[in-house]
C-alpha cells in the first residue's frame, strides 16, 4: 500500500459517505442518476467475486464488502426509500449502451479467458464509463447540488490517484496492468470537464452550473 493507493481509497470511501449523507440529510436523491448507481453495483459485484477466490488482507476484504453493501444500500435509497424524489425523467441514459460494449470488449481484450478474470475485466471496463449516466443527467438539468458536486469530485479523484499509484508501482515494483491503466485513464479523462467547472465554481463558493 503506497500513499497514492491509500489516498485513492480514502477518496473513494469519502465519495460513498458523501453520497449516502446527501440522500439521508436532504431526504432526497434529486439530481442523482440511479442508472450510474446500478452500474456501480454491477461493477462491485462482478469485480469482488474474488472475495471467494483470493484473500489479500482484512483491509482488502472489508473494503470490498463495504463497497458492495453500500452500492446496494444506495440503490435501495434511490429506488425504494426516496423514490418520490428520484429524477427519473432526466435519468434516461440507456445502460445497455454501456453494458453490452463492455461485456463484448471483456470477451475480446482480457488477460485470460476464465470466469473470474472475465468478470474482473468487465468490471474494470464498466467502471470507466459508469459515471456517464450521472454526467448526462447533469448536462440535461444544467446544474448539480453542491454536495453532489463534492461527491463527483471525490469519485473522480479516486481514479486519478490510482493512476499515480500505478506509476509508482511501475517504477518501484515493476508491476503494471495495461487493462486497469487504460480504463483508469479513460475514467479520469471523463471527469476532466467536471473537474474544471468544480474548481472554477464550487471551490469559489458558487453553485455548480454548466456554462450557458
Amino acid at each position: 500500500m503506497n500513499i497514492f493507493r491509500f489516498l485513492g481509497d480514502a477518496s473513494h470511501f469519502a465519495a460513498i459517505i458523501i453520497l449516502v449523507l446527501k440522500i439521508w440529510k436532504t431526504r432526497s436523491c434529486a439530481g442523482l442518476s440511479g442508472r450510474s448507481q446500478i452500474a456501480f453495483a454491477i461493477v462491485f459485484t462482478t469485480r469482488y467475486v474474488d472475495l471467494l477466490t483470493s484473500y489479500v488482507s482484512l483491509y482488502n476484504s472489508l473494503a470490498k464488502i463495504i463497497f458492495i453493501f453500500s452500492s446496494y444500500a444506495t440503490l435501495y435509497l434511490i429506488y425504494f426509500r426516496f423514490k418520490a424524489t428520484y429524477d427519473g425523467n432526466h435519468d434516461t441514459f440507456r445502460l445497455e449502451f454501456l453494458l453490452v460494449p463492455c461485456a463484448l470488449l471483456a470477451l475480446i481484450v482480457n488477460h485470460r479467458f476464465q470466469v473470474v478474470e472475465l468478470l474482473w475485466t468487465f468490471s474494470i471496463y464498466l467502471e470507466s464509463v459508469a459515471i456517464l449516466p450521472q454526467l448526462f443527467l447533469i448536462s440535461k438539468t444544467g446544474e448539480a447540488e453542491t454536495i453532489t458536486s463534492h461527491y463527483l469530485f471525490s469519485l473522480g479523484s479516486y481514479r486519478g490517484l490510482y493512476i499515480l499509484n500505478w506509476i509508482y508501482r511501475y517504477y518501484v515494483q515493476n508491476y503494471y496492468d495495461l487493462i486497469a491503466i487504460s480504463a483508469g485513464v479513460l475514467q479520469t479523462l471523463l471527469y476532466c470537464d467536471f473537474f474544471y467547472l468544480y474548481i472554477t465554481r464550487v471551490i469559489k463558493g458558487k453553485a455548480f452550473a454548466l456554462p450557458a
Partner: peptide, 10 residues
C-alpha cells in the same frame, strides 16, 4: 500479468 497482485487493488 501477475493476477495475484491485482486483487489487492479495489
Amino acid at each position: 500479468s501477475d493476477s495475484s497482485k491485482k486483487h489487492d487493488e479495489l
